[in-house]
Design a protein around this nucleic acid. Structure first.
Lengths: 359, 359
DNA sequence: TTGTACGCGTTATCAG
DNA sequence: CTGATAACGCGTACAA
């Protein structure tokens, strides 16, 4: 009876609370369902987390109450208590660029499959933005971070690493931070582009594209340069600052206008190559009869152009999958899985052919 | 002196805690900086939130401590305390589809600009996934939701609405849920496509594309049908289930092979139209001399194809901006801003021309 | 102007 | 097997 009196003392309070559901409906808490199931909060917690012993009968009562009251655990409270948020920050420059959109898509999907929510952060290539995003991620206590940012400033990521949060870098390095870095061999990719065109018989090359501040892009260019040097050849190189269709097309136009017009145009990306195709055709040149064009990435757009673009495919989706696998291992404190290979592949379509006879 | 003794009593505890920073570094809390600044937690909180009175001197000390200890507020605790998470759920089918990627990009950027973190959820068009995402959003206590999902099952969103969380729908309706819906006039868009081709003199039409379960797509088709009916004409209609380049190309190929070949192909989206161009050219037909093609959306890819695609542009970015503006007003409990108009625009490029003479 | 103390919803520890 | 209870970090009445 004394027990009953104690309950009566607290219940009016709870009643008045559920009454005040006016604006932001007060969440039904573990306590509400404890009361409804005639159990203690501890027992309810045990049911929810499958931890400790709970009799089948009690469990049934609790589960019924959970279903009836449409209980949803409060993630904020769980996080406060446990320190883990089941959230992962995904930092990238933009989503309206297919390369990063595809990356983000696969990352998000794989993370969610394993019970993590992705916190996607678009830095717009602004260091300022990036710093603010990092603060947010810290504040949100993310359990891990995937960084696909192009910014050179690794300083911000030090704050993450210092907090003991594991980081995986995609398509870039994060020097001095003990992290995993997932990326294709871009220098090799450059060599592959040059190789293909050399084999077709080309001797006059130009490399056009952007963005010049991106390490992967520069690595590709270097690969081209190295391979051509081995053949005793050089390339005209025109790199722009912004990675934009129009800008790349204009770059190609300049290259095609100069004396000793190249017979092979190497785009640093598919977009650059597509711009080059437009430039050539706009000048009355035939692709690939007058000029060959090759790209890099093999984005969906590579198949949309006519003629369809020959390009070097990057295993974007595998990269994302592998990044998640590695990060999850780090977050769980397990041994890192062996890195699967990220082989590049030449995809020959319709924009490359032997150079015209007179060249 | 008694004061000093009191401090000594508590400090060893704090010291031992910061020592145990082993695995997941224990966050520096408001208490740590209170101690460092020789102030109380209340004062520190006041400084952080700019609420209540704080002397300039104290404020300076506190801010110095915050900077020195690299304090970051614990979002989980803030949320637990305040009930607001400063997070917004963004539910869409996929990110590897440019239409949604662009939407997500602008939504994310605009939300962050206003202090909200986007929680991007890709449902992959699976009702099951969607339900699980909704649970997560509830669990995370998001302050609002933007839904661009294609799923017809509005039932899940009732759970959100029931929790008193404001919802804005983009590019779809959410019937029976008192929400704002941001979308272009797709029926009018269909009419515009038909109008343009009729004005050029076309009389034999086909509509091809996907996905057939998308209300906006169906509205466009209906617009085409209505406009053609006014001209006493009909169209052959072929809608597929998956919205995929190859599938759409195959659809167009079938249409172009049949008797009474159409002179005008209307794609339900840019991707469908691009597929149609490939089909036509692959069959030896010239675009636009033999067959005209028009698309819908004006995605970047519309400019990549050759010839460049004539299409009806949808103000994607304005839609996203407006969705955020509306949602923020709802979350702040303010009056909804007047909806700016979302005018469609015909973008004439190189895939439409008068039909061939013999037609 | 500043400090104390309570409670938000959870989980984990400890008694029963 | 189950229940009471102490934190987690923060914001805020209320007291000083």
């Amino acid at each position: 009876m004394g027990f009953s009196v104690y309950l009566e003392g607290t219940s009016p309070l709870t009643a008045s609370k559920s009454e005040a559901a006016g604006e932001r409906g007060a969440m039904t808490s573990i306590r509400d369902i404890a009361q409804a199931a005639n159990a203690s909060v501890a027992t309810v917690s045990r049911v929810i987390n499958n931890s400790g012993y709970v009799s089948a009968e009690t469990r049934a009562r609790v589960e019924a109450a959970i279903a009836a009251l449409e209980y949803t655990p409060n993630a904020g409270a769980q996080r406060l208590r446990s320190g883990a948020s089941r959230m992962v920050g995904v930092v990238l420059p933009a989503l309206d660029v297919p390369f990063f959109a595809i990356l983000a898509h696969v990352l998000e999907r794989e993370l969610f499959r394993r019970g993590y929510q992705a916190l996607i952060c678009c830095t717009d290539e602004s260091a300022d933005q990036e710093a603010r995003y990092i603060s947010t991620l810290l504040s949100q206590q993310v359990d891990g971070v995937v960084a696909a940012s192009v910014l050179a400033d690794a300083g911000q990521y030090r704050r993450i690493a210092d907090a003991g949060i594991p980081i995986v870098a995609i398509d870039r390095d994060l020097p001095d931070l003990a992290v995993v870095s997932i990326k294709a061999d871009h220098a090799l990719g450059g060599r592959m582009m040059a190789d293909h065109l050399l084999a077709l018989g080309h001797r006059r090359f130009a490399v056009i594209g952007a963005p010049a501040h991106s390490p992967p892009v520069l690595a590709r260019v270097q690969g081209v340069v190295d391979r051509l040097a081995e053949a005793g050849l050089q390339a005209q190189i025109e790199l722009g600052r912004v990675h934009d269709f129009d800008a790349c097309r204009d770059l190609a136009r300049v290259v095609l206008t100069g004396a000793g017009r190249p017979t092979a145009l190497i785009g640093t990306t598919d977009i650059a190559a597509i711009g080059a195709i437009h430039a050539a055709i706009g000048m009355g040149l035939a692709v690939p009869q007058d000029v060959s064009v090759i790209g890099f990435d093999d984005l969906p757009a590579a198949r949309y152009v006519l003629p369809a673009l020959t390009t070097v495919a990057q295993p974007l989706r595998s990269m994302a999958e592998q990044a998640v696998a590695q990060l999850c291992a780090m977050m769980a404190g397990q041994a890192l899985p062996a890195p699967a290979d990220l082989a590049l592949k030449l995809v020959q379509r319709d924009t490359t052919a032997p150079p015209p006879p007179e060249a």
